[in-house]
Computed example of a mutant assay.
Amino acid sequence: MTNALPDSAPGFDQPIAVLKHCHDRIRKQLATLEKLLAHLPAHGADEQAQQAAAAVIKYFDKAAHLHHEDEEQDLIPMLQATAQGDDAALLGQLVPLILSEHHQMDAMWQNLHEALSGIANASAATLNASEVQRFVHMYSGHMEREESHVAPMAKRLFSAQQMAQLGQAMQLRRGIAVPVAAGDAVAGLRKDYGQATLSENDVAADPIVQFNQWFEQALKAEVNEPNAMSVATVDERGRPSSRIVLIKQFDARGFTWYTNYDSQKGRQLAAQPFAALLFFWPELERQIRIEGRVERTGADESDKYFHSRPLKSRLAAIASAQSMPIASRAALEHNYDAVAQQYGEEPPRPDNWGGFRLVPERLEFWQGRRSRFHDRIVYTLQPDGSWARERLQP
């Protein structure tokens, strides 16, 4: 007995072809079973027989079950949801038979598995010919039925998006990472929103009050890191950069965070003291955009917040020349150890570390709505210090 080299398998972007390839591999294992049935009386459980038995066990113990799950959990339900008329009627006849045969073949396999295990470890040298032939006959007819009716129907009815969905489900079932969507596939990635609405008649007259209401709701909803915000700044050439930081205070004066003044954002804000903030709370289908002038907080405020931080965070703020290159992680940790040894439990706030406060001039509250017809309410600061409020088109 010889085992042929495996054929090149199609990719999961062709899921029906993958299922057909699985059938071809099943046919090879069934052929090995029949050869083994003829081989054993003459040669017993020799090395060839042991290897053949082990190969059949390996395939039917795992791959065949995955194939059945592909059909039962994805292919068949997707066809039932798509088929109409004569196709739906044909499925009504075929599906109960296909599922019944899956159960019968699984039961047959359990009996064969025990006998093949004995051959694989050379403790037995016989197979029940009747059981082998019944197993081969049922599997062969089963695959022929699927290839004649089910596969052609899927090819005819499924859209490109459904084919991609089926292929991804098959990959995930096998523990294969689904590639990051690219090109046209990215265009199909979307989520429809519909949790809430936002009316200019319902929001607060003061945008800080409105922000506080939404922030409280984000806390109550246990949004992941509701205090995380993107801070976008520009350099002297007008080129933007952004990063995520944590807001530490907000009130009528503005929105405050703390950082190293010598960092990239610190240097950029020193040259161009304007920034844009963005909060995104997907759990609530909301985002808030805030734009305005940026100023440094007073030394007293920076001292108060710095000394409220955990000790290790204070030491790290001293040890790290934020945004500057360093040779290695080991060098960074060496700096930390040196600072910890120098200052102990009471490190002082460095002069180059403190708060920035964005004084808002424009705030936009965005609530996701169905079909990308979102609600957008914007507040704009007026010369007299009041806020103008209006709706924007999505």
Rank of each mutant, 00 (worst) to 15 (best):
M1R: 12
M1P: 10
T2M: 11
N3D: 10
N3L: 11
A4P: 04
A9N: 04
Q14M: 08
H21E: 02
H21Y: 14
R25Q: 13
I26W: 00
Q29G: 04
L33P: 02
H39N: 02
P41V: 08
H43Y: 12
G44V: 08
E47P: 02
Q51R: 15
L75P: 04
Q80H: 03
Q84R: 15
L90P: 01
L91E: 01
L91H: 06
G92E: 03
Q93P: 02
P96W: 06
E101R: 05
M105S: 09
A115G: 08
S117Q: 14
A120I: 01
L127R: 02
R134M: 14
V136I: 14
M138N: 10
E147D: 15
M153D: 00
K155W: 10
Q162V: 11
Q165T: 14
A169G: 03
M170K: 04
A177F: 03
A181N: 12
V186Y: 12
L189A: 05
L189R: 13
R190T: 13
D192A: 10
D192M: 10
Y193P: 01
Q195H: 11
T197S: 15
L198S: 10
E200Y: 03
V203M: 06
V203R: 02
A205Y: 02
D206Y: 11
P207Y: 09
V209C: 09
Q210P: 01
Q213A: 14
F215S: 05
E216M: 12
E216N: 10
P226W: 03
A228C: 06
A232I: 10
T233F: 03
T233R: 02
E236Y: 00
R239F: 15
P240E: 10
R243H: 07
L246E: 03
F255W: 04
N260Y: 02
Q264S: 08
K265H: 05
G266V: 09
G266C: 06
G266Q: 07
L269G: 00
P282I: 11
L284M: 13
R286Q: 13
R289W: 14
R293I: 10
T297M: 03
D303C: 09
S308D: 04
R314E: 08
I318E: 00
A319E: 07
S320D: 02
A321Q: 11
A331F: 00
H334E: 15
A338F: 02
A340N: 07
Q341N: 06
E345R: 12
P347M: 00
R349D: 04
G355T: 00
R357Y: 08
R357V: 14
E361T: 11
R362S: 13
L363S: 09
F365L: 12
R370N: 12
R370S: 14
R376I: 10
R376L: 13
Y379M: 09
L381C: 10
W387P: 02
A388T: 13
R389F: 02
